[in-house]
Amino acid sequence: MLHIEQLNAGYGDVQILWDVTLDVRPGELIALVGANGAGKTTLLNAISALVTRYRGKILFDGKDLTRLAPYEVARLGIAHVPEGRRLFPGMTVRENLEVGAMSKEARSKLKTSLEEVYSLFPILKERERQEAGTLSGGQQQMLAIARALMSRPKLLMIDEASLGLAPKVVGEIYDTLLDIRKAGLTMLIVEQNVALALDVCQRAYVLENGRVAVSGECKKLQNDPKVQEAYLGIIEGI
């Protein structure tokens, strides 16, 4: 579904990603993990066309994304929940969701989509008329995910689903994400909490200094001593 090959990308002259190769197949939940500054956000933004791509391929359903503008990528069916959520703070919850449904097709299914996201996140229905900027952190994260779902995407990318949220809320959000995945949506998720990510994903990519250091099935990575030591805080011999 998404095929990235030998991608080099960065900000102007500052190259961040080096020869990144990554695949997302239909129905998969892929985790992208790595230390702060490893380049996870940059990779998602390279897919969304918001950073400079120097070399390499990004194919989505066979279409080349490297020459498209950000809004064109979004309209192909890639929804991006950005780092920091970037809600429209002065617009109401409902209006944020409506803006999420931009394409003609999404707009024609607006009612159905609204019902769907409200049943996933009932609190949003309660807060429908409240300005997004006044929601709690957890509610904002739910709204950011719901807003992305309003476009009825083929691929959902989430940058930091759990950052800054209480464990209980993280649990709720991940339960919902797993439900969405069962319904067939493909996901690429950046997650600080590596243990959590490896628990729910099929495959994972570990970025280090802008390169893919390790990748593979999540179950295997969970038992990989290198990953355990670097990301799971498990040190051999203790």
């Binding site: 809004y71 979004a74 970037r86 429209f88 931009m102």
Partner: peptide
């Protein structure tokens, strides 16, 4: 709505597919 969204956050508007 496209105009208001762009006024609030030009980058976020692009993530939504707004030109």
């Amino acid at each position: 709505r496209m105009i208001r969204a762009t006024a609030e956050d030009r980058i976020a508007a692009q993530y939504m597919g707004i030109p």
